[in-house]
Simulated scan of single mutants.
Amino acid sequence: MNLAVMKKLTPEQSEELLHILEDRFEKNMHRHEGLDWSNVQAKLEAAPEKLWSLHQMEATDGEPDVVAHDHEKDEYMFCDCSTESPKGRRSVCYDQAALEARKKHKPENSAINMAAAMEIELLTEVQYRTLQQLENFDKKTSSWIQTPADIRELGGALFCDYRFGHVFVYHNGADSYYGARGFRGALFV
């Protein structure tokens, strides 16, 4: 079966998702002041594969919304804006190597594998900190972020959360996983 066919929403699914995204966009203007939904919608309608990724973000409780616009590239950044790390993406280790390294009590998946399957990216530390300037997320949970290669080569991975009025960046073994740790994704349209 052709994967491109599988990664396309029906017209009904597209319409429903666009309605959800528009409603969220309008209710949260503080995340994207000065932007107009009609411009975002036009970009989405021109890129149905991006709608498929946003559908995946929505289906895993990420509550994606526009958080930035790059004027030079005319590109919008969608990010998971659920209050806590998306429920459908928790209890995962960092990447495939970490998943394979676990001998007992393996999680079902890894953050990097899930993000790749959804065709989104884990947030960088800078993106995570920028998101936290819009409102406070992960007050009870934490989210894996992109980890520099030198840290990952030593077996570690980074995650962030928001506690005591601050964003914290921590490290853990890449093979660790917790019920309160997932990941937030970014999608550029």
Rank of each mutant, 00 (worst) to 15 (best):
S82A: 15
T83G: 10
E84Q: 15
S85F: 08
P86C: 12
K87F: 09
K87I: 12
G88T: 10
G88H: 07
R89P: 02
R90K: 15
V92H: 01
C93H: 04
C93G: 06
C93W: 04
Y94I: 09
L99F: 09
E100Q: 11
A101W: 08
A101F: 10
R102N: 09
K103G: 13
K104L: 14
H105I: 14
H105W: 14
P107G: 14
P107F: 12
E108M: 14
N109P: 03
S110D: 08
I112D: 07
N113M: 14
N113C: 13
M114Q: 11
M118V: 06
M118G: 01
E121Y: 11
E121S: 12
T124A: 08
T124I: 12
E125M: 04
E125G: 06
E125P: 07
V126L: 13
Q127L: 01
R129H: 09
T130Y: 07
Q132N: 10
Q132I: 02
Q133A: 01
Q133I: 00
L134M: 06
N136D: 01
N136S: 04
F137Q: 00
D138S: 05
D138H: 06
K140A: 00
T141C: 02
T141V: 02
S143Y: 03
S143G: 05
S143V: 06
W144L: 02
T147R: 02
T147E: 02
P148E: 08
